[in-house]
Design a binder for these strands. Sequence first.
DNA 1: CTAGGGTTAG
Length: 467
Amino acid sequence: MLSRQFQTLRHLQKSTTTTHLLQLQALILKTALDRDEFFISKFIQSSSSVSIEFTRLFFDSLLPLDPPPPIFAFNTIIREYSKSSSPLESVKLFSQLQRVGLKPDKFTYPFVLKSCGWCSVIGVGGAVHSLVVKMGFDSDRYVGNTLLRMYSGCGTIGFARQVFDEMCERDVVSWSSMIAGYVACNCPLDALMVFQSMKLVNQNPNSVTLVSLLSACTRLLNIRIGTSIHSHVIVNNIKLDVALGTALLEMYSKCGRIEVALQVFSSLEEKNLQSWTIMISGVADHGRGEDAISLFTQMEENGLKPDSLSFSGILSACSHLGLVEEGKRYFDQMVNTYGIKPTMEHYGCMIDMLGRAGMIEEAYRVIKSMPMEPNSVILRSFIGASKNHGEVNCLDENLRKLLLQIEPDLGGNYVLAACVSSVSENWNDVASLRDAMKGRRLKKAPGCSWVEVNSASSGEIIQPAVG
DNA sequence: CTAGGGTTAG
């Protein structure tokens, strides 16, 4: 029997089509392997990489059996669905297993909760949470940690925090998940405060924790804490893997230390698409367009395929450096060679680039060719360029109106609109400008509400003081 | 005879 299983599984490894899989299914039925719990799970696991749909058909054919498929088989297919493009199927299977009289175990919950977080279905996730508590699985660390992630994946960080606070034991994963959750919902200061508590209970951060902390520093533009994390890495001999290295070079780059970022970048043993892209955007943001182009070429030579964000970096470099021909070439390459659909940001770079170069008509043609309505950044850039190049007379009035319509609360837009409006209109009249803005509350620039603490003993990760 | 949780660009 064992050799038969082995043989069938080896066939499975070679299977690439559903026809092969159907032949295998016939074989399984003939040899009664569908009664073998161990085999079924292995089969589900391997065949779902070929086709999850087929795997489901196979699994459904087992459902009417008596006894029903073992919980292990359910867990396996639920896990496979949580990794697939239709994670909601794992939720359906979760209720189905209860309908055939089986009880979810401590492995079932993490898989189904992962799907809930992925699909952002807080309703289902909450229901599963109640079940977790009712069945007494809330003391399981894995279950607790996936609950936390489910809530933060659903954008409900308060619930995530509540799960975290009520956990009876927290490990480094719980702390890292909580910190990552705060970073993801754009509360980097809360992330640092969680880390402060983490130090108080003597829980050591690992490299995953540090990646999230660096991300928090990047958002706060806090080079001091970022640097202290770097020294912690060096003092504690923590390996600079791709994730940590990329987070570190991003922190330096976004905080204006482009030279240090380049140093970290070149010291990385392994670089992935993200490392290259962040480095390219970094030098581009520092006005070093030639370096961006050279890095982009090196990246392609290293066999990496640029994605949508890589092109954002290189296009913004072209725009800042006024490299119109290169920019057009990259845009064309993106669409025609790599088949990437341009986003608002890509169009923004092109329009900005053409506008700065005084190619107003061509920039206008790009706006008209966009499949979506231009956003305020693009409109401001284009209207500003028209003004700077003295081409306000042929400006499309609709674009000017559109800007005030989609972003009526930004005062500067009225100034810009007034500058490019024809004299016959009354935008230049202060009274009517005030009238147009009546009742509008203008946006204030965000301020920094906290003060740094100055204590940089090496290896010690410093903390912000909350003001 | 088997399985589970956390990380990076906007």
